[in-house]
Structures are given as structure tokens and as C-alpha cells.
Design a protein around this nucleic acid. Structure first.
Length: 567
RNA sequence: UGCCCCCUCGUCCAAUGGCAGGACAUCGGUCUUUGGAUCCGAGAAUGGUGGUUCGAAUCCACCGGGGGCAACCA
């Protein structure tokens, strides 16, 4: 049965339909070489969580099957690309923990691609078309009607070759000619109706400078770049499905023997999120967000600044799975991945978002105690603690007090007793209000026997609340981030509206007067915490300063009280 | 309207002709010095109709639904 050593690995590797296929190809040595994948972004925007699915797949498969994975920039369009985006990809890939086997650029293949162009012309598989752009569009036909041949389709090899060389030499203005594959203008697959291969673009390229004035299209550059690199498995998203026909055609016509094979999988979609680079660029350019690394952006840089770890991001995209079904993942799946990761790694500290002063009337004036507070709860296998000062005047969360509290409210209320986390039991005795009737202060008594939070008489309290010592607390700015859009699918807007109309006006709420325990004073910017009972936060890598602390909310804690309250 | 892809709990993914299972979410309980986490439990799905087969989520046909393709973008 399982005597064959080949059985075990292929069974173990069976995780999704692509890995299954790769396992099969490895087992049969289909390509006659180790498997090779590539991550081929166009450097025209920042990498985002949608890219990460492709990244995790390509790098993951290479690693799992003993292959290699290239980072190749698909930089064939000089009008949209920029070196700052290639830097962003490299920075973020490194931060995520991926190492590419080679850093390559499609634009470095322009010379090779040009040679293939001449080869195709010589073999009568391509021709120079001199129709105008609108003419080309019109003669392509529609999805239901066939296209018609270009009058230039029957140019001789010599005529096309001469034109092609002059195109390269820069003798023609933009749009004067294009190189097209000679396939079938009536093909049922629109992509196969004599696809365009090369266009004239007198434009400075961020990497090639002015070396070229002809630039290849995706359908020309992409398959050949894969083939040149010896890629075995060219993995891409489903919208390129129709391009698979031209992919196969091209690598065959160009003479590759064991050419790469393209396989498509569905794109990642996330509720309340947009991944379209055009739209993200608009959010940045029109100031709806602070930049590509705004913590609300679905970019890797945004997630990083928001406090999400690489491990959480990767766990999330891997949990989303790989299939060919159009998928739309719930935000809760993402948030779970983030919390699940942070729970096990970050220290807990106390921060009061909306402070309400409490005076302990029976606590000696001027006395300060240093209470020992563990950084981690009992179920997290990490150790460490800090001292938190305790005094007569404290701040507690305004939401942790209710004057007329329902039975299920376990926190502070007149006459009720709660535990201060790591501190004492306190009982609320008085509510102090201002002239308008607003609660401005609470009076309470503490039980000296309950120091540290345990009652020697075995008395139980229902609630434990967080607090800070008023004279010792540090001021902090909290940036409370929430979903960027108000509806799960920001593209599903009314006629005449666009995604901008469903931006969430409360996607960022800045809280200036938060009070945090002094232990965090000298932690470096970029330190992650859980603020007990509220949310995970990270001190902002750019704006947080020792005397002006700024924290970004990564994700809230689950809040089962909110559910009870809303019933 | 042509071609192509897809359709399994609310969501995402399994089941490779043989007991429809897992994760997230939901609900209930346990535990708790975080209304966090943990642990236990529950409800929840094969789009429809036919066919092939001892046996169909799986194969076939038709119907229905969703998506992609008509940039000198990728």
C-alpha cells in the first residue's frame, strides 16, 4: 500500500487545488526541472492584503516543494510606474519575512522581447498594424460579433520587419503603429483577436530611462518573462483566465519546450475594504486618508502602522483559502486572525480612554503604593510584570460607571463594589455632579484587606475594571481606527454614486485626553500592547514621542457586554 | 447576445463515486483578577430538475444564479 516513499509527501501536500497540482507535477517531474514560481507585481501602487494572497501562495509553494520564487516587477507601462513602489514592495516583502531568490524586472527583458517580436514576424505570426486606436477598437468586434481583419494584416514579412525596426528606432510618433499577433479576428475569445504585442510610447521609464520607445503589453511580456526565467507554475488571479490562451500560444510560438503553465485562482476580497489600486490611489491623492500607510488602508504598510503583525496577516490570507470561487471574506475572519496573534504576544497595560475621577475617601492623603501587575494573563505563556502606582485619586473609564445600572451591569454603580485590576475592591459612595447635572467625580471607599485584588473573607465581586492613578497617569492621544467604509461592498453603491460616498466618517476618531499608566513612558515607538478590557494598540511609529504619546488602535477586544447591552 | 470560469452551513475552505467535516461568525454553558482568552455544547449547507450508478456534493444533460472578457492597463 504505502510502501512507495512517494505516497507520503503527496498526501501531506494536498491542501488546495494548486498545491495538489504542483505535488503531482513534482512527483512526475513534469517540467524536468525544480519547480519555480514568481511574484510579479506592477510597481504602480503599494502592496496590499490582496497581493499577500499571491505572495503567500507563490513563496509558500516554492518553499514547500523545494523550488524557487522570483520577485519580478512587471514594469512594462512607463506611464504609471515608479521606483518608490518597487521600494515599497521590497520593504514590505522583507517585513513580511519573505526572501526572493532573484530580483528581476520585466523591463530588463525588453531586448529579448524585441528579438521574439522579430522572430514572430519572420514566422508570419505577427504583423505591424497601422490602424488608429479607434479603428483597432472598432474592428475587434464585440462579444457577440466577430472582428474584421486589419487592411495591414497581409503585409509581407519584410514590410512588417522594416516597420518594426523603425518603430524601435523611434521614427514614428505614439500610436502610429503597433505590433499584433496574427491569430484570428473572429476568435470567440476576445483576447485572441490579434492581440497587441508592442506599442510606441515616447516616455521616460523609471528604470530604462529613454532607452526604449516601444513597450510590450502584458500579454506579450508576461508569458515570455515567465518562460525566460524557467518558471514552472505561473499563478495568477481569475481575471486573467482568458489570457491563458494567448499565454499558451505565445510560449509555443516562441519555441519554449517545457513552458510554464498558468493557473488561476480567485482574488481575495474583504468586507468593508477595497483593493483596487486605482481607487486606493484616489483615496491617497484626494486626501481621504493620510497616505499609503494610513492605518485604515488595506496596504501592508497601513496594517503595519496599525499594529498588525506579519504573522497575523499571513495567517489570515492562508485561512482565506485558495479556490476558483469568487470569494468575499467577512471582516470578522480578519479580526480574529489579528487578535489571535496579538493575544499570545503583547503585554497588557492599563489606559483609560474617557476618564472619570474617583476619590477614595478612606485612602490616606499623599500615600502612594507600587502595585505589582503582571504583563500577561495566566493563559499566556510569557512572564514579566511592572509596578503601577496607586493613590487616593484615580481615573476609571466613564463607561464603567452607571448611575442607574441594570442587574447585568457588573461594573461600578452607587453602592456597588468592584475590583480595581491588580488593586483593591472599592465601593462607590457618592456621585458628584456639576450645575448641568453631569457626573464629574465619584467618591468611593476602598477595602485595605483586598490589596492585589483578593478578598481574605472570600467575598466575590462581579466586575473588575481598569484604572490609572490620577497624579501619575500620562496623557495620551488615541487614534481609534474603524472600517473605512460603511457597507460591506464599497463598490455596491447607488447609481451615480461612487465608493467615496460610502466612506465611514468615523473611520478615525481621535481621543486627546486619554490617561495611561506611566510604565509605557520610555517604550520605543512601535511597541504593541493590549490596553486591558478595550483593544490592542501600537504606539505610532512616526508621531509618538516620549512626552506626546500617540497610540493607534489595531483592533478592539471582543465585547460581549456590548451584545448584552444591545438586547 | 459569443466564449470562459464558478455555485457545499451566514462567511471561507474540505470531502478526489462510499458516514457532508473544519475554521470564523451566531447562540447556550464553563471558567475567569480583562464581560479578553480558554474549554464544552448547539443550531446551521450540497441552487433546481432529470439521468448514469448498488451508491452522486462529486459524473452527464437541461434550467437557474454569480463572475470575467470588447484599454495602445495589468
Amino acid at each position: 500500500m504505502s510502501d512507495s516513499p512517494n505516497d507520503a509527501p503527496s498526501a501531506a501536500a494536498r491542501r488546495d487545488f494548486i498545491r495538489e497540482m504542483v505535488a503531482e507535477d513534482v512527483a512526475t517531474n513534469r517540467f524536468g526541472r525544480p519547480i519555480a514560481t514568481r511574484f510579479p507585481p506592477e510597481p504602480n501602487g503599494f502592496p496590499h492584503i490582496g497581493h499577500l494572497k499571491a505572495i503567500a501562495l507563490n513563496f509558500g509553494i516554492a518553499r514547500e516543494f523545494g523550488g524557487r520564487c522570483n520577485l519580478r516587477f512587471d514594469d512594462t507601462n512607463p506611464t504609471t510606474e515608479d521606483v518608490k513602489y518597487v521600494e515599497a514592495f521590497k520593504t514590505d516583502l522583507t517585513w513580511l519575512g519573505y526572501q526572493w531568490d532573484a530580483e528581476l524586472y520585466a523591463s530588463d527583458y525588453f531586448e529579448k522581447l524585441y528579438a521574439f517580436a522579430e522572430l514572430l514576424v519572420e514566422n508570419e505570426k505577427a504583423y505591424v498594424d497601422s490602424q488608429s486606436e479607434p479603428q483597432i477598437r472598432q474592428t475587434r468586434g464585440t462579444v457577440t460579433t466577430p472582428g474584421t481583419d486589419s487592411p495591414y494584416r497581409d503585409r509581407t514579412v519584410d514590410q512588417s520587419l522594416e516597420l518594426l525596426r523603425r518603430m524601435r528606432a523611434g521614427e514614428f510618433p505614439d500610436g502610429a503603429h503597433v505590433l499584433r499577433a496574427k491569430i484570428d479576428m473572429a476568435h470567440p475569445n476576445m483576447v485572441m483577436r490579434d492581440p497587441l504585442l508592442l506599442r510606441i510610447r515616447h516616455k521616460h521609464h523609471y528604470r530604462q530611462g529613454d532607452n526604449w520607445c516601444i513597450y510590450p503589453f502584458y500579454d506579450f511580456a508576461h508569458p515570455l518573462s515567465d518562460a525566460i526565467e524557467g518558471i514552472t507554475h505561473s499563478l495568477c488571479t481569475l481575471e486573467f483566465k482568458d489570457n491563458n490562451d494567448i499565454y499558451k500560444w505565445l510560449v509555443r510560438e516562441c519555441g519554449f519546450v517545457h513552458p510554464p503553465e498558468q493557473t488561476e485562482f480567485s482574488r481575495l476580497e474583504l468586507d468593508y475594504t477595497l483593493f483596487s489600486k486605482r481607487k486606493l490611489l484616489r483615496l491617497v491623492n484626494e486626501g481621504f486618508v493620510a497616505g499609503w500607510d494610513d492605518p485604515r488602508m488595506p496596504t501592508i504598510a497601513g496594517a503595519r502602522r496599525r499594529g498588525v503583525t506579519p504573522e497575523a496577516l499571513i495567517a489570515f490570507v492562508e485561512s482565506a483559502g485558495v479556490s476558483r470561487k469568487p470569494q468575499r471574506t467577512e471582516l470578522a475572519t480578519y479580526e480574529h486572525a489579528v487578535r489571535d496573534d496579538l493575544n499570545m504576544r503583547v503585554p497588557r497595560v492599563m489606559c483609560v480612554t474617557n476618564p472619570l475621577k474617583v476619590v477614595l475617601t478612606n485612602y490616606p492623603e499623599g500615600q502612594v503604593e507600587e502595585l505589582d501587575a503582571s504583563y500577561y494573563p495566566h493563559d499566556v505563556p510569557k512572564t514579566g510584570s511592572r509596578k503601577v502606582p496607586f493613590s487616593r485619586e484615580l481615573y476609571i473609564e466613564r463607561d464603567d460607571f452607571m448611575e442607574d445600572a441594570p442587574k447585568k451591569f457588573f461594573r461600578l454603580a452607587p453602592g456597588r463594589e468592584v475590583r480595581l485590576r491588580y488593586g483593591y475592591f472599592i465601593t462607590c459612595t457618592d456621585v458628584v455632579k456639576d450645575a448641568k447635572g453631569e457626573i464629574v467625580e465619584l467618591r468611593a471607599t476602598y477595602d485595605p484587606a483586598t490589596r492585589g485584588g483578593d478578598s481574605p473573607d472570600g467575598r466575590k465581586v462581579q466586575g473588575t475594571i481598569h484604572w490609572v492613578s490620577a497624579p501619575h497617569a500620562l496623557d495620551a492621544e488615541l487614534r481609534l481606527y474603524d472600517k473605512l467604509f460603511t457597507i460591506p461592498d464599497p463598490d455596491a453603491v447607488e447609481e451615480g454614486e461612487d465608493f467615496v460616498s460610502v466612506l465611514n466618517p468615523e473611520s478615525l476618531v481621535v481621543v486627546k485626553g486619554a490617561k495611561i499608566e506611566p510604565s509605557v513612558a520610555n517604550d520605543p515607538a512601535g511597541t504593541r500592547y493590549q490596553f486591558e478590557r478595550t483593544a490592542y494598540f501600537i504606539s505610532d511609529a512616526i508621531d509618538s514621542k516620549p512626552r506626546a504619546l500617540v497610540f493607534n488602535r489595531t483592533v478592539t477586544l471582543r465585547d460581549s457586554w456590548a451584545k448584552i447591552k444591545n438586547k
